[in-house]
């Protein structure tokens, strides 16, 4: 059965037809959620929520965009809501009050291991990148996640975010510049 037939079958009451759709798109949804929450357990829970929401709202899917685009939108909204609610938790705020700045604390990597393949980030370094990723504006973050974590072309990102391709390009560029500048400020000069 192809995608449209599966969707029609689910809408006609055959719940089991939703299973193949989950199997087909679980990686896509998981990677998107992971790009926002950076935690496998949380990303798995969010992936489940995304599919449940998609199942409940399937009758609203109007075939104007592809099913994956529609699913991406649900995944982004669900992830952003999770991130927002996490941020609003009191202890998170308290944590940031007492957060100590660790500026200029990292040695700059040497020439030999300056490639993503050879480099292994320590827990501290990963935490720093994650923190700086979380500081990006929501739009920059969405564009960055879809571009780098999902390797989507700008045209598809534009369709998902419902903005122009030029705007997507600008968002990705700004996200990368902000990330690189903010992280580089932690290196010992």
């Amino acid at each position: 059965m192809n995608e449209n037939e599966l969707i029609t079958s689910v809408l006609n009451g055959n719940t089991n037809a939703f299973g193949p759709l989950v199997t087909r798109y679980q990686e896509l949804v998981f990677n998107t959620c992971m790009g926002f929450v950076h935690n496998a357990d949380e990303a798995n829970d969010l992936t489940q929520d995304v599919f449940i929401r998609a199942f409940e709202k399937l009758s609203q899917f109007n075939h104007q965009a592809s099913f994956s685009t529609w699913l991406y939108r649900i995944a982004i909204n669900t992830s952003l809501n999770a991130v927002r609610s996490k941020k609003s938790q009191l202890f998170q705020r308290m944590g940031s009050w007492f957060e100590t700045e660790n500026k200029a604390g990292f040695e700059m990597p040497s020439d030999q291991n300056l490639t993503p393949e050879s480099l292994m980030l320590t827990t501290e370094q990963s935490a720093l990148v994650q923190k700086e990723l979380d500081k990006l504006s929501e739009k920059q973050r969405v564009a960055f996640v879809l571009s780098r974590c999902e390797n989507l072309p700008q045209k598809e990102i534009a369709s998902i975010m419902q903005i122009s391709e030029g705007a997507v390009e600008s968002l990705i560029k700004r996200a990368k510049t902000n990330l690189a500048k903010n992280i580089s400020s932690y290196f010992k000069k």
Binding site: P109, L114, V129, N182, S184, F187
Partner: peptide, 13 residues
């Protein structure tokens, strides 16, 4: 430093 930071981001992703 900027290049190293970009590599860190790539590695993280």
């Amino acid at each position: 430093a900027l290049y190293a930071a970009s590599v860190w981001v790539d590695t993280f992703v």
